[in-house]
Design a protein around this nucleic acid. Structure first.
Lengths: 144, 144
DNA sequence: TATATATAGGATAAATTTGTCCGATTTATA
DNA sequence: TATAAATCGGACAAATTTATCCTATATATA
């Protein structure tokens, strides 16, 4: 559904949020280790997220990645997905036809419409806070 | 959402069905031209679909691809997707965690569950016939 | 039976995604 | 101020997906 980069990006952002709730800044190494992702590749993805103003980075010794508590409540899954994979997953045509539209629908257009709409709504409505909350209370798990 | 191969596969199967409704067998060239896909790559995909018993191929002069009318009513989108992309799109974890399950859910598990379920149901319920019907009547379009 | 027109399938190439490496820069602290 | 630990960013490499090419095989028909 999402690219590997996007999966890592979401996992990383959730983990950074979890730590930021306790005012703990995390280094790239820590993050990659906890979300089980390749370190250098994760670095690239975190850079993208910093550029898109989703997480903050602090350089130098004791530096790392963090996210403001206020932002944890504001940032939605959709913003992470859009920053890494773009919005074609919930905007584009299911058959990859560039000319497909409401006025000129492809054969699966209306079939996919409801699914894409549900996905879009879910991504737009789900905040980091919501995800972190249930992770903190042990209802969900980020890594085995 | 789907791979390019899967997009071409669905488009090709719909086009073959459309022609088979009028007992017209189509050559690879015809198909690729009408669905706007690379010829040789499309050949590989059609071979996969033949192997998965979704379409039939006839070799030799006047040969080509076709699909039995009865099958047009039976084959569901899900079978095409499964043959080419596998079922991870509506079965796997949204974050790519292999250990994610109902008992051990990832942070987005329940959020994705409804979306994946809707996608799965749609793919399992949508028959080729349904798609071809609306294409025949000009309500939808396969290519601009 | 020769020919032209198909699919089948293996080898290869191009493009994209995923992943690594390393030097430059930043910054806390001994 | 020297050092160590961190991010930044560019170049490169591996893996996967997408796409091409060519030969073998099948088959309708002149």
């Amino acid at each position: 559904m999402f690219s590997k980069a996007c999966e890592y990006g979401i996992r990383a952002t959730i983990y950074i949020s979890l730590q930021s709730m306790q005012d703990k800044r995390q280094s790239l190494k820590d993050i990659a280790q906890h979300i089980d992702s390749p370190v250098a590749f994760t670095a690239k993805i975190l850079q993208q997220l910093v550029k898109h103003n989703i997480i903050n980075s602090v350089q130098g010794a004791t530096g790392g990645f963090e996210i403001e508590k206020q932002k944890i409540k504001e940032i939605k899954l959709q913003q992470i997905v859009k920053a890494i994979d773009g919005s074609s997953i919930y905007m584009g045509c299911g058959l990859g036809l560039s000319e497909c539209s409401e006025k000129n629908p492809c054969p699966v257009h209306y079939k996919f419409k409801a699914v894409r709409e549900k996905l879009r709504m879910m991504l737009e409505e789900t905040s980091l806070y919501e995800l972190v909350e249930r992770l903190e209370s042990g209802l969900t798990f980020l890594k085995i």
